[in-house]
Design a binder for these strands. Structure first.
Lengths: 340, 340
DNA sequence: TATAAAATAGTAACCGCTTACAATTATATC
DNA sequence: GATATAATTGTAAGCGGTTACTATTTTATA
């Protein structure tokens, strides 16, 4: 930190007290025009800017929020973060970014760090939200908004209805005449229903059951939300006994991997196997075949979370602590209608 | 900010002075084992954590760096930021993230904000680095590292050799027998050579000249680094009088757009038109045809920038203020060898 | 045991700002 | 012009730490 003019310097030069200087910079009405002018003049002459740091200490308010996500280089999260940042910018908040890689240790470490930085609140986006992490937050008493995860605890959250989204996607596949439908999901965390993949899997199963279709265990594969994982999972299906006529991948990236596996098996997508993804990343409309997918409103998840957190910080009433944003089915070219 | 125990509370409970408490938490050697224990015990009992805010004020050091990028939701930048964050995490720095959208006003606003937050330094990544912005930084006297842009000013920077990279890519196309090569570039900022596209264009022109190939004006198109832009630019070329046999897009995303334009024109990539991109985003290897491209070490640009900034902040000697990281040509399936 | 040196611990000023409260000055009212 | 009221301004005590300097206690040395 290079030394710069402080409030005393300005006060001295302007021949007023520090209180007056402070008032000028906080737009207090109780300052005479004359005083205001001379303060402003002195400040300009000295290149004075109030220290947000000192102000934060004095006011016990930092106008900063902490942001814990697994990995900013994942396009899903970078879009969420962009939404958060834009809203924060409007309300004059700044964000401290933390990549926790879904590691519980890192998350806790970051939470404590953010707390000792007196952030006004935290937006937490992780694949898991457990009792443990809930207790941590409760202990620390920091305003918290959960993004992308629902919970039964009394914590505000913004999500989409993952189950319904998967249900809709599956119904769409069924409506297109597909019967043997495969799924590539992510970590199920012991089916504990605290994780996207579990919700989505239930949605899938519901739709299948409703349509009276058989669910083949061999067509339900776990993967890692990466292209390579999607590739491997799809390849295993294609080499198996039950050949899928459609595959529902729980992320666009896995869907892309699956499409490549189809090509590499000498088959065509969507002619031989239809693929539906999840997320609607930018890449979904750029690739060939353009990906039919379930769109998540990533930007809005971030934006709404930020707006909600700021309201909570400001002690404003929030109309609804549990926000469920709408998903959308985006139909492109990776699914085909099968003749009955 | 919820109230929590402060250093006085701990001192009182532990029956020592605040100085001793401070020493314990700063691992000062001059504390007896007995005092240390009782302080730690008291701190635990009260749930005390030192306030980084107060410490920063007292020490005039925040262990925070500011990060100004155009747009975190752009995968190039999110990868750079991830590199920065990882290094910062190691050295116990935190980052304040700012999306400036290449707007000069926003950039200046953010710089001033970061300064009044006493960040220890700033990593600045923008498409442009002008006299104006240089002066701003100089005025503010904040340690600065430039990422992704070179400059003649005395400012440390991390870049790749854009000119050489484009030269290499072009040479590769030429070596594959391509002659009528098109280019889709970004903003040229009046050919002022402060912008990636200009450097790359020169590299392209050098290679063409060296090979004695004709450069067709109609095959040099400006676009916006987006898929749609790449699509439009490629479409114009394909509809023009001079048909390109290869196109060099200055970003992977534009390259993908161009590939789609080729398909939509009833042509094939790479059989009819080869495409080479720039960046090597994750998407490049996921799409079909997998994209041949110039790889930028995004993560390393961020990581090296962060490491350099932290060294500067710590007044350590840095061996080289101008770092040029290596690019790599990644050969995949979007370019074909033409028979002579 | 006296004394010097080393190890601990405490006091209080300071970092730069906000703000309650008191003090002063200007304006309005009679 | 005296007095009440409103508008300004200043004083000084925080906010929660660090640290130079001083004071005290221990330990080492003669």
């Amino acid at each position: 930190m290079v030394c710069m003019a402080n409030i005393d310097d300005v006060a001295k030069l302007a021949n007023v007290s520090t209180a007056t200087v402070s008032r000028v910079f906080n737009n207090s009405p109780y300052v005479s025009e004359k005083a205001r002018e001379s303060v402003l003049k002195a400040a300009k002459e000295l290149g004075y800017e109030p220290s947000i740091l000192a102000r934060s200490l004095a006011m016990k308010k930092t106008n900063t929020i902490g942001l814990i996500v697994p990995d900013i280089s994942n396009p899903y999260y970078s879009e969420v973060v962009r939404g958060i940042e834009d809203v924060c910018n409007i309300y004059k908040y700044n964000i401290i970014l933390c990549n926790a890689d879904n590691s519980r240790d890192k998350e806790i470490q970051y939470i404590d760090m953010l707390k000792s930085r007196w952030v006004d609140g935290i937006i937490f986006h992780s694949d898991y939200f457990s009792d443990e992490i809930y207790d941590i937050f409760k202990d620390r008493k920091i305003p918290l908004v959960l993004a992308g995860r629902a919970t039964n605890y009394d914590v505000p959250y913004i999500v989409i209805d993952n189950k319904k989204a998967a249900y809709d996607a599956t119904k769409y596949l069924i409506s297109q005449g597909h019967k043997k439908i495969g799924v590539i999901h992510g970590d199920l965390n012991g089916m504990k229903e605290t994780v996207d993949s579990v919700d989505r899997l239930y949605g899938f199963l519901d739709a299948m059951k409703e349509a009276g279709l058989k669910v083949y265990d061999e067509l339900i594969k776990e993967s890692n939300f990466k292209a390579k994982g999607g590739y491997i999972a799809a390849k295993e299906m294609l080499n198996g006994n039950v050949k899928p006529d459609a595959i529902f991948a729980f992320s666009d990236v896995m869907a892309m991997g699956a499409i490549n596996a189809i090509f590499d098996a000498g088959l065509k997508c969507p002619e031989d196997v239809s693929i539906i993804g999840f997320d609607n990343l930018d890449l979904a409309e750029v690739t060939r075949p353009a990906l039919t997918t379930v769109a998540q409103p990533m930007y809005d998840i971030g934006a709404v979370a930020a707006r909600m957190l700021i309201k909570i910080i400001d002690n404003k009433k929030i109309s609804e602590k549990r926000v469920i944003l709408r998903h959308r089915l985006i139909i492109r070219q990776s699914c085909i209608k099968k003749d009955a």
